[in-house]
Design a protein around this nucleic acid. Structure first.
Lengths: 336, 336
DNA sequence: GTCTAGAATGTGACCGGTCACATGTTACCG
DNA sequence: CGGTAACATGTGACCGGTCACATTCTAGAC
């Protein structure tokens, strides 16, 4: 396997043609006579020639590479968006480089490096509002938000329809006969938490149920914060009979807090989450949740980004995908 | 922000020097007089010049990019290795492109494309023995295995010390007074499963406990297979009082199977896993396990790969990292 | 004041492709 | 059989850097 430095001109010499003809052959131009093509192809095979991607990028002024920047690559929700995006990008002949930027400074540095050195042609951002990182995005560079909607910026985005998902979750609890329904939110600085808040409110309003800020606690998306938040809510009198938790990790924390308080789920407390994390069915009890189609969010985000790269003048678009209610055993009939 | 096509020659013209001097400035050569440097630097600033990464790669014959190929990017163990590797690679001035190859064919295609087109300088492979994918690796290209040891190939690798970890897990159960200890393995085609098998055997042998193949069941690494495997083991008479499960996902399946069978954990059955997955502490009961330092495996793998890239003649090395016993509540004293 | 080493800077080729355009061939027409 | 359009192939510049080497400048020694 001669992986060495065989160039297009070596092949040309061997086949007795010009380097341009070789270029035509590897680019499948039809302007080549079959016998010439055959001669070039056998020269390519004999020499083990492979086109050099860097040189090609250089000449064409493109890199065929996109970047995805997330706070980390391990969070299941991020990872599955990335996986979907990477696969779709590859299907469309792009490579995807994913980087974790756990703080704003790293994010700023990365964006600057990747975009300005023209190493990538577009950037996909997961969690642009985790801190003030969105402010470091260049205005004139193809960008897409995955899993979040833009605020004022005109940026392409693909995410869950948060309002609708939250409304469905809350409605599910209402349908089961619950009236005193608490909510544990993500950080309220994030639009996603606000949108889910909105959906919860709308569902309650639609059913003429009262909304009380006492029933709402803020968390961090992580399990321990769900645990703590529920501890606080459990002191209420009367206690809520159901909780809509804005993500599964926190919901799992609630499950454990309830268990530690000696509560039976779903008999004394119904719990519903959002995401459908991998082992959701293996907690005690198996978790009812609204499943996000992360893979599809990733795929659509990749498509959106590639569109932005290839058609710079296309209008931006916001895609909001639906969630699917997965009923397991952490929700049950309300009192009465 | 003029991100357009300002080249090194534009800067040179503006600063009244040659393009080479500009090159020296951006490469921090000390062979430039301070006043010249200042002139060039202000020209760079005024024009908003940024070096083009592709052109630089082209001229230097390198790409500064590595690839990581895993069966998927969502599995927590893979994702955390990748995250660690990506961060370390970046610290060492490389970018990392991660791709998921869920089947052997995709893997072969990817490797071929990435390596032969010289798009990347080295490849990190996660789970090279998932199928026959390792056979598609080029022999003369920098490669490292992360999370697995090589068989006959002389390939760099970084992974858990599986034998030792399994021995520790089994020993923990023995120390608690268990004598009838079952094991649920991963697919026995994988070396990792075999090594953990070995560690289990060694621990039992050291304590003169009998090893019975009836006590061993094979799984797939996934939770449902743990569930099924334990169902089978539970029919044994006498039943095992403890199970060493080769990973946490399957262990979680065992937890649920035991619960469904009405068994109390750890009173009637002790369960220990391997990995320490994110919500291990939130299952019922919280899972005792051997924690892998995935982040470090990733970092070391990146270092290893970069060494292989930069010093092609360095001998290959196999790094085996230790696990840490995390005692939670799924293991308890044996009978008697 | 001249010589010379070493530092500072400039020149042109080169990395390996693609592009625009020039040239050479073929085939079909009157 | 010449003319010409369409096809096939060749030529050299170019993408934006770096490299090797040539040239110019500076400063210290004689």
């Amino acid at each position: 396997m001669a992986r060495s430095r065989v160039t297009i001109r070596d092949v040309a010499a061997r086949a007795g043609v010009s380097h341009q003809t070789v270029s035509r052959v590897i680019n499948e131009s039809k302007q080549v006579r079959p016998d010439t093509r055959a001669r070039v192809e056998s020269a390519i095979a004999e020499l083990g020639y492979r086109p050099n991607a860097t040189a090609r990028n250089m000449a064409k002024g493109r890199t065929g590479t996109l970047a995805c920047i997330a706070p980390n690559l391990t969070d299941y929700t991020f990872a599955s968006i990335i996986d979907g995006a990477e696969t779709e990008a590859r299907r469309l002949d792009y490579f995807m480089l994913s980087a974790s930027a756990h703080d704003e400074e790293t994010f700023a540095y990365l964006v600057d490096d990747l975009a300005n050195s023209r190493r990538v042609e577009g950037i996909m951002v997961i969690n642009p509002y985790a801190d003030q990182r969105h402010r470091h995005l260049p205005g004139d560079f193809p960008t897409v938000f995955a899993g979040a909607r833009p605020r004022e910026e005109a940026t392409d985005s693909v995410s869950l329809n948060d309002v609708e998902a939250a409304r469905e979750a809350t409605q599910h609890l209402i349908n089961l006969g619950h009236q005193r329904i608490a909510m544990i939110t993500g950080p309220m600085a994030e639009d996603c938490s606000q949108d889910r808040y909105l959906g919860y409110e709308q569902a309650l309003q639609d059913e003429r149920l009262t909304i009380s800020s006492a029933l709402i606690a803020e968390g961090t998306w992580l399990a321990p914060s769900g645990y703590d938040a529920y501890q606080r809510l459990s002191h209420l009198d009367p206690a809520p009979t159901a909780v809509f938790v804005q993500n599964d990790q926190m919901a799992v924390g609630v499950l454990r807090a309830a268990r530690d308080l000696g509560l039976e789920i779903p008999k004394q407390l119904s719990v519903i989450g959002v995401d459908d994390i991998p082992l959701a069915a293996y907690f005690a009890p198996p978790l009812t949740t609204l499943k996000q189609d992360f893979d599809n969010i990733g795929r659509e985000a990749a498509r959106s980004l590639i569109r932005a790269v290839e058609q710079p003048d296309a209008p931006t678009q916001q895609l909001r995908l639906p969630a699917e209610l997965i009923i397991r055993r952490s929700t049950g009939p309300g009192p009465g």
